[in-house]
Design a protein around this nucleic acid. Structure first.
Lengths: 154, 154
DNA sequence: ATGAATTTCATACTTTAGTATGAGTGTTTT
DNA sequence: AAAACACTCATACTAAAGTATGAAATTCAT
Protein backbone atom coordinates (compact mmCIF):
# COMPACT_ATOMS: atom_id res chain seq x y z
CA UNK A 1 0.00 0.00 0.00
CA UNK A 2 0.91 3.68 -0.49
CA UNK A 3 3.29 2.87 -3.33
CA UNK A 4 2.79 6.00 -5.47
CA UNK A 5 3.55 8.53 -2.75
CA UNK A 6 7.26 8.86 -3.60
CA UNK A 7 6.59 9.97 -7.19
CA UNK A 8 4.08 12.52 -5.98
CA UNK A 9 6.64 14.01 -3.62
CA UNK A 10 9.20 14.23 -6.43
CA UNK A 11 6.93 16.29 -8.67
CA UNK A 12 6.05 18.56 -5.79
CA UNK A 13 9.74 19.09 -5.00
CA UNK A 14 10.65 20.01 -8.61
CA UNK A 15 7.78 22.51 -8.69
CA UNK A 16 8.97 24.10 -5.46
CA UNK A 17 12.63 24.35 -6.58
CA UNK A 18 11.65 25.94 -9.91
CA UNK A 19 9.69 28.67 -8.19
CA UNK A 20 12.54 29.39 -5.76
CA UNK A 21 15.00 29.70 -8.67
CA UNK A 22 12.64 32.08 -10.46
CA UNK A 23 12.25 34.29 -7.40
CA UNK A 24 16.00 34.51 -6.78
CA UNK A 25 16.72 35.32 -10.41
CA UNK A 26 14.18 38.14 -10.24
CA UNK A 27 15.88 39.36 -7.07
CA UNK A 28 19.34 39.49 -8.66
CA UNK A 29 17.98 41.33 -11.71
CA UNK A 30 16.25 43.85 -9.46
CA UNK A 31 19.46 44.37 -7.49
CA UNK A 32 21.51 45.02 -10.66
CA UNK A 33 18.85 47.40 -11.99
CA UNK A 34 18.98 49.37 -8.75
CA UNK A 35 22.77 49.59 -8.96
CA UNK A 36 22.54 51.14 -12.40
CA UNK A 37 19.85 53.53 -11.23
CA UNK A 38 21.88 54.65 -8.23
CA UNK A 39 25.01 55.23 -10.34
CA UNK A 40 23.03 57.33 -12.81
CA UNK A 41 21.50 59.39 -10.06
CA UNK A 42 24.83 60.09 -8.40
CA UNK A 43 26.43 61.19 -11.69
CA UNK A 44 23.57 63.50 -12.60
CA UNK A 45 23.40 64.68 -9.00
CA UNK A 46 19.68 65.21 -9.17
CA UNK A 47 18.62 63.00 -6.26
CA UNK A 48 20.24 62.63 -2.92
CA UNK A 49 21.91 59.39 -1.82
CA UNK A 50 19.49 59.13 1.08
CA UNK A 51 16.46 58.94 -1.19
CA UNK A 52 17.96 56.18 -3.30
CA UNK A 53 18.95 54.13 -0.28
CA UNK A 54 15.50 54.61 1.21
CA UNK A 55 13.83 53.42 -2.00
CA UNK A 56 16.07 50.36 -2.17
CA UNK A 57 15.41 49.57 1.46
CA UNK A 58 11.64 49.81 0.99
CA UNK A 59 11.69 47.71 -2.18
CA UNK A 60 13.65 44.89 -0.57
CA UNK A 61 11.55 45.12 2.55
CA UNK A 62 8.44 44.57 0.43
CA UNK A 63 10.12 41.76 -1.53
CA UNK A 64 11.03 40.05 1.74
CA UNK A 65 7.45 40.23 2.94
CA UNK A 66 6.01 38.93 -0.32
CA UNK A 67 8.39 35.98 -0.58
CA UNK A 68 7.74 34.95 2.97
CA UNK A 69 3.99 35.14 2.51
CA UNK A 70 4.18 32.58 -0.29
CA UNK A 71 6.53 30.23 1.54
CA UNK A 72 4.50 30.29 4.75
CA UNK A 73 1.28 29.83 2.83
CA UNK A 74 2.53 26.46 1.65
CA UNK A 75 3.64 25.51 5.14
CA UNK A 76 0.16 26.34 6.37
CA UNK A 77 -1.43 23.73 4.12
CA UNK A 78 1.27 21.12 4.65
CA UNK A 79 0.59 20.14 8.29
CA UNK A 80 -2.84 18.82 7.28
CA UNK A 81 -1.23 16.22 5.02
CA UNK A 82 -1.07 12.69 6.34
CA UNK A 83 2.25 10.98 7.01
CA UNK A 84 2.11 7.73 5.03
CA UNK A 85 5.58 6.73 6.11
CA UNK A 86 4.58 6.82 9.78
CA UNK A 87 1.61 4.56 9.06
CA UNK A 88 3.97 1.97 7.65
CA UNK A 89 6.49 2.27 10.48
CA UNK A 90 3.69 1.75 12.99
CA UNK A 91 2.82 -1.48 11.18
CA UNK A 92 -0.80 -0.47 10.56
CA UNK A 93 -2.38 -2.55 7.82
CA UNK A 94 -4.69 -1.10 5.17
CA UNK A 95 -7.82 -2.36 6.89
CA UNK A 96 -6.67 -1.27 10.34
CA UNK A 97 -6.03 2.23 9.05
CA UNK A 98 -9.48 2.32 7.48
CA UNK A 99 -11.04 1.37 10.81
CA UNK A 100 -8.97 4.02 12.59
CA UNK A 101 -10.33 6.70 10.26
CA UNK A 102 -13.91 5.58 10.88
CA UNK A 103 -13.32 5.67 14.64
CA UNK A 104 -12.07 9.24 14.31
CA UNK A 105 -15.23 10.20 12.43
CA UNK A 106 -17.20 9.11 15.48
CA UNK A 107 -18.71 5.79 14.38
CA UNK A 108 -19.40 2.82 16.68
CA UNK A 109 -18.03 -0.66 15.99
CA UNK A 110 -21.42 -1.75 14.70
CA UNK A 111 -21.67 1.20 12.33
CA UNK A 112 -18.15 0.63 11.03
CA UNK A 113 -18.99 -3.06 10.46
CA UNK A 114 -22.04 -2.10 8.38
CA UNK A 115 -20.09 0.47 6.40
CA UNK A 116 -17.26 -1.94 5.54
CA UNK A 117 -19.57 -4.96 5.06
CA UNK A 118 -17.96 -7.15 7.71
CA UNK A 119 -19.04 -8.47 11.11
CA UNK A 120 -18.74 -6.46 14.31
CA UNK A 121 -16.29 -9.00 15.76
CA UNK A 122 -13.95 -8.35 12.85
CA UNK A 123 -14.01 -4.65 13.63
CA UNK A 124 -13.33 -5.42 17.28
CA UNK A 125 -10.24 -7.37 16.25
CA UNK A 126 -9.04 -4.50 14.07
CA UNK A 127 -9.70 -1.95 16.81
CA UNK A 128 -7.75 -4.01 19.32
CA UNK A 129 -4.80 -4.20 16.94
CA UNK A 130 -4.96 -0.47 16.27
CA UNK A 131 -4.93 0.27 20.01
CA UNK A 132 -1.87 -1.92 20.54
CA UNK A 133 0.00 -0.40 17.59
CA UNK A 134 -0.80 3.16 18.65
CA UNK A 135 -0.12 2.35 22.31
CA UNK A 136 -3.58 3.57 23.31
CA UNK A 137 -5.97 2.32 25.96
CA UNK A 138 -9.16 3.70 24.42
CA UNK A 139 -10.39 4.68 20.97
CA UNK A 140 -10.54 8.32 22.05
CA UNK A 141 -6.86 8.16 22.97
CA UNK A 142 -6.15 6.51 19.63
CA UNK A 143 -7.79 9.48 17.87
CA UNK A 144 -5.65 11.90 19.86
CA UNK A 145 -2.42 9.99 19.18
CA UNK A 146 -3.22 9.52 15.50
CA UNK A 147 -3.63 13.27 15.16
CA UNK A 148 -0.36 13.94 16.95
CA UNK A 149 1.37 11.49 14.62
CA UNK A 150 -0.32 13.23 11.66
CA UNK A 151 -1.62 9.98 10.24
CA UNK A 152 -5.23 11.19 10.11
CA UNK A 153 -6.56 14.54 8.83
CA UNK A 154 -8.03 17.12 11.17
CA UNK B 1 -19.45 31.93 32.21
CA UNK B 2 -16.58 33.23 30.08
CA UNK B 3 -17.03 36.72 31.45
CA UNK B 4 -13.39 37.71 31.48
CA UNK B 5 -12.77 36.95 27.80
CA UNK B 6 -13.30 40.57 26.70
CA UNK B 7 -10.70 41.86 29.12
CA UNK B 8 -8.32 39.15 27.99
CA UNK B 9 -8.77 40.21 24.38
CA UNK B 10 -8.08 43.82 25.36
CA UNK B 11 -4.78 42.95 26.97
CA UNK B 12 -3.84 40.83 23.98
CA UNK B 13 -4.60 43.73 21.63
CA UNK B 14 -2.51 46.20 23.63
CA UNK B 15 0.35 43.72 23.68
CA UNK B 16 0.10 43.28 19.92
CA UNK B 17 0.06 47.03 19.22
CA UNK B 18 3.00 47.61 21.52
CA UNK B 19 5.08 45.04 19.70
CA UNK B 20 4.26 46.57 16.33
CA UNK B 21 5.26 50.02 17.59
CA UNK B 22 8.50 48.61 18.95
CA UNK B 23 9.36 46.92 15.65
CA UNK B 24 8.69 50.06 13.61
CA UNK B 25 10.73 52.20 15.97
CA UNK B 26 13.62 49.77 15.62
CA UNK B 27 13.22 49.95 11.87
CA UNK B 28 13.41 53.75 11.78
CA UNK B 29 16.47 53.75 14.02
CA UNK B 30 18.15 51.19 11.80
CA UNK B 31 17.36 53.27 8.73
CA UNK B 32 18.85 56.41 10.28
CA UNK B 33 21.96 54.53 11.40
CA UNK B 34 22.48 53.23 7.90
CA UNK B 35 22.18 56.73 6.49
CA UNK B 36 24.95 57.94 8.77
CA UNK B 37 27.11 54.94 7.93
CA UNK B 38 26.65 55.49 4.21
CA UNK B 39 27.55 59.19 4.47
CA UNK B 40 30.71 58.43 6.43
CA UNK B 41 31.75 55.76 3.94
CA UNK B 42 31.25 58.08 0.97
CA UNK B 43 33.26 60.85 2.60
CA UNK B 44 36.15 58.57 3.52
CA UNK B 45 35.85 56.84 0.16
CA UNK B 46 36.92 53.51 1.50
CA UNK B 47 33.90 51.45 0.45
CA UNK B 48 32.03 51.59 -2.79
CA UNK B 49 28.43 52.76 -3.02
CA UNK B 50 27.38 49.37 -4.40
CA UNK B 51 28.49 47.56 -1.29
CA UNK B 52 26.58 49.88 1.00
CA UNK B 53 23.43 49.61 -1.06
CA UNK B 54 23.75 45.83 -1.16
CA UNK B 55 24.12 45.67 2.61
CA UNK B 56 21.09 47.88 3.13
CA UNK B 57 19.07 45.82 0.67
CA UNK B 58 19.98 42.55 2.40
CA UNK B 59 19.29 43.96 5.87
CA UNK B 60 15.83 45.20 4.93
CA UNK B 61 15.12 42.00 3.03
CA UNK B 62 15.85 40.01 6.18
CA UNK B 63 13.81 42.43 8.31
CA UNK B 64 10.87 42.00 5.93
CA UNK B 65 11.07 38.23 6.23
CA UNK B 66 11.34 38.29 10.01
CA UNK B 67 8.40 40.65 10.50
CA UNK B 68 6.21 38.63 8.20
CA UNK B 69 7.09 35.43 9.94
CA UNK B 70 5.80 36.84 13.22
CA UNK B 71 2.61 38.25 11.74
CA UNK B 72 1.76 35.06 9.87
CA UNK B 73 2.62 32.98 12.90
CA UNK B 74 -0.17 34.70 14.79
CA UNK B 75 -2.58 34.22 11.88
CA UNK B 76 -1.66 30.56 11.90
CA UNK B 77 -2.77 30.19 15.49
CA UNK B 78 -5.91 32.26 15.05
CA UNK B 79 -8.03 29.75 13.07
CA UNK B 80 -7.51 27.29 15.91
CA UNK B 81 -9.16 29.66 18.34
CA UNK B 82 -12.31 28.40 19.97
CA UNK B 83 -15.73 29.90 19.37
CA UNK B 84 -16.92 30.96 22.82
CA UNK B 85 -20.22 32.24 21.48
CA UNK B 86 -21.11 28.84 20.07
CA UNK B 87 -20.40 27.22 23.43
CA UNK B 88 -22.96 29.51 25.01
CA UNK B 89 -25.57 29.00 22.31
CA UNK B 90 -25.23 25.25 22.75
CA UNK B 91 -25.98 25.73 26.45
CA UNK B 92 -22.79 24.01 27.58
CA UNK B 93 -21.90 24.86 31.18
CA UNK B 94 -18.36 25.58 32.35
CA UNK B 95 -17.96 22.14 33.87
CA UNK B 96 -19.51 20.35 30.91
CA UNK B 97 -17.09 22.09 28.59
CA UNK B 98 -14.17 21.11 30.79
CA UNK B 99 -15.25 17.49 30.63
CA UNK B 100 -15.63 17.72 26.86
CA UNK B 101 -12.03 18.91 26.55
CA UNK B 102 -10.78 16.04 28.67
CA UNK B 103 -12.75 13.57 26.57
CA UNK B 104 -11.08 14.98 23.45
CA UNK B 105 -7.66 14.51 25.01
CA UNK B 106 -8.45 10.80 25.26
CA UNK B 107 -9.14 10.35 28.97
CA UNK B 108 -11.61 7.85 30.45
CA UNK B 109 -14.41 8.88 32.81
CA UNK B 110 -12.41 7.58 35.75
CA UNK B 111 -9.31 9.55 34.75
CA UNK B 112 -11.33 12.73 34.25
CA UNK B 113 -12.92 12.24 37.67
CA UNK B 114 -9.48 11.97 39.29
CA UNK B 115 -8.19 15.00 37.41
CA UNK B 116 -11.14 17.21 38.40
CA UNK B 117 -11.39 15.80 41.95
CA UNK B 118 -14.98 14.57 41.64
CA UNK B 119 -16.63 11.14 41.50
CA UNK B 120 -16.95 9.10 38.33
CA UNK B 121 -20.75 9.29 38.49
CA UNK B 122 -20.53 13.07 38.34
CA UNK B 123 -18.47 12.81 35.18
CA UNK B 124 -21.00 10.40 33.72
CA UNK B 125 -23.75 12.94 34.34
CA UNK B 126 -21.71 15.68 32.64
CA UNK B 127 -20.86 13.43 29.71
CA UNK B 128 -24.52 12.54 29.23
CA UNK B 129 -25.45 16.23 29.18
CA UNK B 130 -22.66 17.02 26.73
CA UNK B 131 -23.84 14.25 24.39
CA UNK B 132 -27.41 15.59 24.43
CA UNK B 133 -26.31 19.18 23.86
CA UNK B 134 -23.99 18.24 21.00
CA UNK B 135 -26.55 15.80 19.58
CA UNK B 136 -24.02 12.96 19.71
CA UNK B 137 -24.49 9.28 20.46
CA UNK B 138 -20.93 8.55 21.55
CA UNK B 139 -18.01 10.49 22.98
CA UNK B 140 -16.05 9.96 19.78
CA UNK B 141 -18.87 11.60 17.83
CA UNK B 142 -18.91 14.43 20.37
CA UNK B 143 -15.20 15.03 19.68
CA UNK B 144 -15.84 15.15 15.93
CA UNK B 145 -18.80 17.52 16.29
CA UNK B 146 -16.99 19.76 18.76
CA UNK B 147 -14.16 20.14 16.26
CA UNK B 148 -16.55 20.96 13.43
CA UNK B 149 -18.19 23.58 15.62
CA UNK B 150 -14.71 24.93 16.50
CA UNK B 151 -15.39 24.82 20.21
CA UNK B 152 -12.30 22.72 20.96
CA UNK B 153 -8.74 23.18 19.61
CA UNK B 154 -7.23 20.72 17.16
C1' DA C 1 -34.37 36.43 49.43
C1' DT C 2 -36.31 33.37 46.19
C1' DG C 3 -36.32 30.88 41.93
C1' DA C 4 -33.34 29.08 38.36
C1' DA C 5 -29.35 26.97 37.02
C1' DT C 6 -25.15 24.49 38.17
C1' DT C 7 -22.65 21.08 40.35
C1' DT C 8 -22.39 17.24 42.87
C1' DC C 9 -23.37 12.26 43.97
C1' DA C 10 -25.64 7.63 44.14
C1' DT C 11 -27.96 3.44 42.51
C1' DA C 12 -29.51 0.43 39.09
C1' DC C 13 -29.53 -0.72 34.63
C1' DT C 14 -28.41 -1.35 29.43
C1' DT C 15 -25.29 -0.89 25.90
C1' DT C 16 -20.92 -0.51 23.85
C1' DA C 17 -16.00 -1.22 24.02
C1' DG C 18 -12.21 -3.94 24.52
C1' DT C 19 -9.47 -8.56 25.61
C1' DA C 20 -8.22 -13.28 24.90
C1' DT C 21 -8.22 -17.17 22.31
C1' DG C 22 -8.72 -19.99 18.47
C1' DA C 23 -9.45 -20.82 13.81
C1' DG C 24 -10.47 -20.68 8.70
C1' DT C 25 -9.25 -18.38 4.20
C1' DG C 26 -6.73 -16.22 1.13
C1' DT C 27 -2.14 -13.73 -0.56
C1' DT C 28 2.56 -13.12 -0.81
C1' DT C 29 7.31 -14.14 0.01
C1' DT C 30 11.16 -17.19 0.45
C1' DA D 1 5.47 -26.00 -0.77
C1' DA D 2 5.81 -23.79 3.59
C1' DA D 3 6.17 -19.74 6.31
C1' DA D 4 4.45 -15.31 7.06
C1' DC D 5 1.01 -12.05 6.82
C1' DA D 6 -3.62 -9.94 6.34
C1' DC D 7 -8.43 -10.47 6.77
C1' DT D 8 -12.19 -12.68 8.42
C1' DC D 9 -15.31 -14.57 12.16
C1' DA D 10 -16.90 -16.59 16.59
C1' DT D 11 -17.34 -17.21 21.59
C1' DA D 12 -16.79 -15.85 26.17
C1' DC D 13 -15.45 -12.71 29.13
C1' DT D 14 -14.24 -8.09 31.61
C1' DA D 15 -14.29 -3.26 31.58
C1' DA D 16 -15.95 0.93 30.30
C1' DA D 17 -19.55 3.94 28.62
C1' DG D 18 -23.98 5.72 28.67
C1' DT D 19 -29.14 6.18 30.51
C1' DA D 20 -32.62 7.14 33.89
C1' DT D 21 -34.02 8.83 38.05
C1' DG D 22 -33.79 11.20 42.19
C1' DA D 23 -31.77 14.30 45.32
C1' DA D 24 -28.85 17.58 47.97
C1' DA D 25 -25.75 21.67 48.09
C1' DT D 26 -24.20 25.69 45.86
C1' DT D 27 -24.10 29.68 42.95
C1' DC D 28 -26.22 33.63 40.90
C1' DA D 29 -29.16 37.05 39.11
C1' DT D 30 -33.54 39.72 39.58
Amino acid sequence: MFKNTSTQFQFYYIYKVRKTIFIFTALVIALLALFQLSKYSIITGNSSVETIIAIIAIIFFVIGILINRRVLHKEKIKPQEIDHKKIETLGLSKREYEVLCEIASGLSNKEIAEKLFVSESTIKTHVSNVLVKLDAKRRTQAIQKAKELKIIPY
